[in-house]
């Protein structure tokens, strides 16, 4: 892709990045930081490309190290964020969250577990 297109995309992404977090409540600052942290683990894609094109053993070794580190960032980041967020739920059984279509199955199960 040519430089100007990449620059265009970058500038637009900056504004999207500013916009999506501009009004987040401080309650969710930590999960948001952790979620954003997981997203940059996508450097894994870059590490895979470099490792897949490595010909010299040293290059391959360093690239595989990068794959391990990036995977840790990506997988660990999403898992720890999920753990934080699964704790945001109501306690009282008589006051369940309104059953919306987007309520996923595991959520409901954990709610019942938490109230036993």
């Amino acid at each position: 892709m040519d430089g100007i297109s990449l620059l265009t995309i970058t500038v637009l992404a900056v504004f999207v990045g500013f916009e999506v977090v501009s009004k987040v409540s401080s309650t969710l600052h930590t999960p948001l930081m952790s979620g954003a942290n997981a997203i940059h683990g996508i450097i894994l894609v870059g590490a895979i490309i470099v490792a897949g094109q490595a010909t010299h053993p040293w290059v391959l070794a360093v690239a595989l190290l990068a794959v391990v580190l990036a995977t840790a960032n990506l997988v660990g980041g999403f898992v720890v964020t999920d753990r934080m967020l699964e704790m945001f739920r109501g306690r009282k059984p008589d006051k369940p969250a309104k059953p919306t279509p987007d309520e996923t199955q595991p959520d409901t199960k954990e709610n019942t577990e938490a109230t036993r």
Binding site: M1, L6, I9, T10, A13, V14, F15, V16, G17, F18, V20, V21, S22, V24, H29, L32, M33, A36, N37, I39, H40, I42, I43, V45, G46
Partner: peptide
Amino acid sequence: VLLVVAGTLVGASGTIL
């Protein structure tokens, strides 16, 4: 492009945060 977009998103939102 994906790395550019995802990285920039995190860079921008992280700065605001």
